[in-house]
């Protein structure tokens, strides 16, 4: 059997040697490969339209004049694009200050989540200790109460700690566990790594922290990148936490600050969309650059078979 069959659809294609080293494809296989590529492209293209559309619509709204926005017929391409809206939003609210505040919270939280959840998940996934399974269920059940009913006690807690009007309620908890979602996600990935791999290291007298840092973590880059991305996005767009815990206007974050463009009876749609688009850029850039991890995959796959 020719390997060419595998070269495109294989999830591990990236890890395989590049095409030139493959033996020449035989006729039928090549037809199949081309057909597969066409199918994939067709599916991707048709889905893409669905997923791109809202973003284009947001851009279009950001560029419209109020009159055009009020026009009865909706148009995707504005007649008279108001690129100035993207500049106006910087003077309408202290955009840079808000961005700085948001960045501090986001990067602080990311650091906390990555450090903390990767450690804790290691324990839940690969170490045996009494009470582990029970605590894991407790961990999961912290996700099952709707935020509405723990809002006030959480507020009272941070109030008693004297943390209100600081970034502490938004950042510090990330260092203590990093969230049940992330712990669970990492646990699932840690557990796919063959047990023998670490057991032998352990018998060799390797310390647990070294097994974690030297063997496990390097194998989990894609999922760590995923968690970093989720955390970034969650923090960057969160307006509810800042709304409740921050009162000093100087500490306002972007997502919260942008809400000012919506009043009881009216809204500055153009500014709101322009602001939302600018604030979405960092997430997109981050996503685009983190893809490296998804594309590259695990170069060490050889040790896993």
């Amino acid at each position: 059997m020719s390997r060419s069959f595998l070269s495109s659809p294989s999830p591990a294609g990236a890890a395989l040697p590049a095409a030139p080293t493959l033996p020449p494809a035989r006729g039928r296989a090549r037809v199949r490969r081309v057909a597969y590529q066409v199918l994939v492209q067709a599916l991707l293209l048709s889905f893409s339209a669905l997923f791109l559309f809202p973003f284009l619509w947001m851009l279009s709204t950001a560029l419209k004049t109020p009159q055009e926005m009020f026009a009865a017929v909706m148009r995707l391409i504005p007649r008279d694009p108001q690129w100035g809206n993207f500049i106006r939003v910087f003077s309408a609210i202290p955009f840079l200050r808000y961005t700085l505040n948001t960045a501090i919270i986001t990067f602080g939280t990311m650091a906390g989540v990555l450090l903390s959840s990767s450690l804790v998940a290691y324990s839940f996934a690969r170490l045996r200790w009494p009470g582990r399974n029970l605590l894991f269920v407790v961990l999961l059940s912290t996700l099952m109460l709707p935020g509405q009913v723990i809002l006030i006690p959480t507020f009272i807690l941070f109030s008693n700690l004297g943390w209100l009007d600081s970034f502490a309620p938004l950042v510090v908890p990330a260092f203590f566990g990093g969230g049940a979602f992330n712990i669970f996600l990492l646990r699932q990935f840690y557990r796919t790594i063959p047990f023998d791999l670490t057991e032998s290291a352990r018998i060799d007298g390797c310390r647990e922290i070294h097994i974690y840092a030297r063997i496990i973590l390097p194998l989990c880059k894609p999922i760590l990148a995923t968690i970093a991305l989720f955390t970034f996005m969650g923090c960057w767009n969160d307006f509810f936490g800042p709304l409740i815990f921050l009162t000093n206007p100087d500490l306002t974050t972007l997502a919260l600050g942008l809400r000012a463009f919506q009043q009881q009876h009216t809204a500055q749609w153009d500014l709101m969309m322009a602001g939302a688009l600018i604030s979405a850029l960092p997430t997109l850039v981050l996503f685009f650059s983190f893809q490296r991890y998804f594309v590259e995959g695990i170069t060490l796959t050889g040790i896993k078979g």
Partner: peptide, 30 residues
């Protein structure tokens, strides 16, 4: 075994502490 259990608890400690300090009170209150 004992070393592993100890390591297990220590690795999970950040979450255990975080749970006791930040999560238990709101959940118990509700």
């Amino acid at each position: 075994r004992r070393k592993e259990a100890l390591a297990g608890v220590l690795f999970a400690l950040p979450w255990i502490l975080g749970f006791l300090v930040f999560t238990l009170y709101p959940i118990a209150s509700s």
